[in-house]
């Protein structure tokens, strides 16, 4: 039972990180129809910027804010100067975002070096709780809380604000949103940059969890996020949340019981979903 609870907490924490990466990716795919491979590099930029600022200031909050701010601005830059030029052209999107991924990942190596940077957890989250013999890592609980807060925040933004209404309308009919007098391109930029900032937040929170950040972490996590999007359902925010939790829990369980099958299980799950429910387990947010 103890190990079961530990695995659930680990899985939910992993799911929360995946959710930060996948939710933005899913909305970008759903709203803008953009296959975005820059998420991996945004993830590591978030991690590196966090480590850099945390090391300089010893402030966890400043490190997080810097990571989110830098990746948000990178998102604006990517969308305005590159992605906006290839709307509707998926092969060009893949090529251009993969190109950005390569360039900005190399830039990380140029600035911070090829050796992974190490980082500890902030003092106030470095301990563990022991409840009835179960060791609970505070930082993992913190990650779950952040995931829930971000999910709740996005839910409120999408469902209770006019911005959210326009985004949801734009997922279905961007042409009609324009015909109602709304410059949907501004929302595209906002959504892309928002997704980028979430990826950056994911990277910033990931680094203290594993104790380091390597420039190779981007693509690995990007692939996991794509699997979440496919499993959860493209464009579906709730699907991303559900898919992230599912993959996180599955990954945690497999890492314990059959660690050699971790990658196979993720890809296998995606293949099964694609074969039997191509729209994703939680369905599309809207019909395109």
């Amino acid at each position: 039972m103890d190990i079961f609870i530990t695995l659930v907490i680990n899985g939910l924490a992993q799911g929360a990180l995946l959710f930060l990466l996948a939710s933005g990716l899913s909305i970008i795919l759903g709203l803008m129809g953009v296959v975005n491979f820059t998420h991996g590099t945004l993830f590591i930029w978030g991690g590196y910027v966090y480590i850099w600022i945390f090391t300089l200031t010893d402030s966890f909050l400043l490190g997080i804010l810097a990571a989110v701010g830098v990746t948000f601005l990178m998102g604006v830059f990517f969308e305005k100067f590159f992605v906006s030029r290839v709307y509707g052209n998926v092969p060009a999107q893949i090529l251009i975002t993969l190109g950005l991924q390569v360039i900005f990942t190399d830039l990380v190596r140029l600035i911070w070096g090829a050796t992974p940077l190490t980082i500890g957890r902030p003092d106030f989250l470095a301990d563990t709780w022991i409840v009835g013999g179960i060791v609970i890592v505070q930082y993992r609980v913190f990650l779950i809380a952040v995931g829930v807060i971000v999910a709740f925040g996005i839910h409120l933004l999408l469902n209770k604000t006019k911005i959210g209404m326009i985004v949801r309308a734009g997922v279905q009919r961007p042409d009609m949103v324009r015909a109602l007098g709304i410059n949907i391109n501004t929302y595209f930029t906002f959504v892309f940059a928002g997704g980028a900032a979430l990826a950056g937040l994911g990277g910033a929170l990931y680094a203290p969890l594993v104790g380091s950040m390597a420039s190779t972490a981007g693509m690995h996590n990007q692939v996991l996020a794509f699997i979440v999007v496919v499993v959860g359902g493209m464009g579906s925010f709730m699907g991303s949340a559900g898919g992230s939790v599912l993959l996180g829990l599955m990954g945690s369980g497999i890492a314990w019981f059959a660690p050699g099958f971790a990658s196979v299980a993720n890809v296998g799950l995606m293949a099964i979903v694609l074969a039997f429910k191509p729209s994703g387990l939680f369905g599309l947010a809207v019909k395109k």
């Binding site: 209404m165 949801r168 309308a169 015909a179 709304i182 809207v286």
Partner: peptide, 20 residues
């Protein structure tokens, strides 16, 4: 503009369609 296919946003309520 009222398009031929209505252009209604299915994922929104009537109220939200009007608010958009």
């Amino acid at each position: 503009y009222v398009p031929e296919d209505y252009g209604v946003f299915d994922a929104l309520t009537i109220e939200e369609n009007l608010r958009v």
